[in-house]
Design a protein around this nucleic acid. Structure first.
Lengths: 348, 348
DNA sequence: CTGAAAGCGCTTACAG
DNA sequence: CTGAAAGCGCTTACAG
């Protein structure tokens, strides 16, 4: 029963013995203590390298109370928007020595079911990039003293810091681009009803349309998915009073919408204009050429990372709110401004 | 200097005092020790709940030598294949109490640059799902006693366990479907050259074509991206000796290929057949209707998870190799078998 | 500049 | 069924 269950790990004590210094010194070398003289440091590092020593993160965390782990909470990764930010966030966090633990709820699953896992994960902080995670989760994290940054979503009264895009302003931009191109029967295909982004984009859109005299806006529910865009558009377009322009809550929904229009034999943008939100790479594909509102993702992610790090260092920092403007990217799915309905030229 | 830098954490000792038991008992309650009688357990849990106690994972890991963290190494998340497996893997691992740390190299970055981070991350094991991670990383992990499962890739002589799809067999299926439909000038657009998947798919394809008398196969390099498919197809199709069928190393490449064909005014599948590999959700979109080889992802991921867990429990288990067959999924981007070249009906 | 020693918050033999 | 105690592998005052 006293065999070798696992080959014993190399610890700082092994390195200390082998290089003729104290364990404290080894520790200081690996925490980059400035007081260690170069010669000592070099010798310790050489021995460590030779023995294959790596500091034990658990032991370190136990004392420092930092795990160097951040949790990233997203919804449905089949929406290309999330892989995009996931990749950027992990790159950013790796740069500052934090590793990223992923929490995702696939389509259908409820993210709140992950709550126990999330709460016991002992990360230094969270980025909540899920559109639909309930505010309850956010509240629980904050109660547990764990800093939270909300990425492109709001959670009223949560006291969490937020970084986001001006979704209302973005919706307004879309209203203008459609009215300027001469459209008169706009429609909106929503994302999940519990998502602040969808609500805000719709609100800006409807608000601006009303300001310019259009109060009758068709609407379909949706779920930020390709299929919901396809189905929503099919219903709208088969209607006797079909819209001549559809704003979708995000790009992937708009792509489903475009495919539905194509299947019905409609010409885009002559018969129907379509606008999305996000500017994911696929929006530029020649199958879609989607006009959309680009979110300043790079900047949003950089700010979120910095903000979360600040909160981790000084946990009593008051919550902040940063909102950045989106930018309209015109492509082939909309007509140019001042387009008169009599034009019939052009091609998909 | 003796202020309250951070509100002290609730420890098992606090719970012990408050519920009138020893610290050991609290620990046993939270590690689900069967010997604790229900009354004691209930009391301890009630107090813990009230105090908001959560066991400290670092302290636990320090003793158990398990972090309950697995590393998932992927490449470029803009290829929808990776988000797909990422989501499935995190779901699987969460079920068995493991959390997932993500390592990704975005387009252009070299994954090997992450090596130091990867090695010091102290996870219980790795799933390497990156097509292009060098075998050096795998070797280093194994040297550090950390179990590794290679997902849908090989690493010769690494000694790591592998779970994958029969890429060679898949390539052969594609050769048959194209020849059966009457094509005679096939081409291949590759993925990254350092990826075993691309090489194997090409090998099966070329091998089977040769068996059926076709030895002249056009070829373009690529990188598993939409753009490389678009560019490769454009070059191939503008050639005087253009192919009448293109097999792409994966679906996203095939989608770029289809868009290039569309832009050139070609009819699919009459003028050109296109086949991909993976069967990502977008392959079924009406803009593409891509014929492809479906990988049995669910099963592959389930097996990988189980295998890695086995290796974590008993690290001296010998490496295994599991290969599962792919399945051809016919859609609109290829003609049916026995299609005679004289047919000109049908539509995209 | 370096060392001896306390302690982070748990798990787990060892007793009883 | 429960408790006292050792110890996991580090960091970090405190000395010198």
């Amino acid at each position: 029963m006293t065999g070798t269950p696992r080959p014993r790990r190399i610890t700082s004590l092994d390195v200390a013995r082998e290089s003729g210094v104290s364990q404290s010194t080894v520790s200081r070398v690996f925490s980059d203590d400035k007081r260690i003289i170069p010669e000592t440091k070099a010798r310790v590092l050489a021995v460590a390298q030779e023995l294959g020593y790596r500091p034990n993160a658990s032991a370190r965390s136990l004392i420092t109370r930092r795990t160097n782990l951040v949790g990233l909470i997203t919804s449905d990764l089949t929406n290309p928007f999330y892989p995009l930010i996931l990749e950027a966030f992990t790159a950013q966090f790796h740069k500052v020595g934090q590793r990223v633990i992923l929490f995702t709820a696939g389509t259908g699953e409820e993210l709140d079911d992950l709550l126990p896992d999330i709460l016991s994960s002992q990360v230094d902080g969270f980025v909540v990039a899920s559109a639909s995670l309930s505010s309850a989760v956010v509240r629980e994290c904050l109660r547990a003293q764990t800093p939270v940054v909300l990425f492109n979503r709001t959670a009223p009264d949560s006291g969490a810091s937020q970084v986001g895009c001006d979704n209302i302003g973005g919706g307004r931009l879309v209203a203008d681009v459609l009215l300027d191109a001469g459209h008169s029967r706009p429609a909106f295909i929503a994302g999940r009803g519990d998502a602040s982004t969808s609500r805000d984009r719709e609100r800006g859109f409807v608000e601006r349309l009303a300001e310019r005299g259009i109060t009758d806006v068709l609407r379909e529910g949706g779920s930020f998915t390709y299929q919901s865009g396809f189905d929503g558009a099919t219903r709208l377009l088969k209607h006797s009073d079909a819209p001549d322009a559809i704003f979708c809550a995000n790009d992937i929904t708009a792509m489903g919408c475009l495919d539905a229009a194509r299947d019905l034999g409609l010409r885009v943008p002559q018969d129907l204009a379509v606008v999305g939100f996000d500017d994911i790479p696929a929006a530029a594909w020649s199958a879609y050429r989607l006009t959309t509102v680009r979110q300043p993702l790079g900047e949003m992610i950089r700010r979120s990372t910095i903000r979360l790090l600040e909160l981790i260092e000084t946990s009593d920092s008051p919550p902040t709110l940063e909102v950045m403007p989106g930018q309209l990217v015109r492509r082939g799915s909309t007509r140019p401004s001042n387009f008169s309905r009599s034009h019939t030229g052009g091609h998909l």
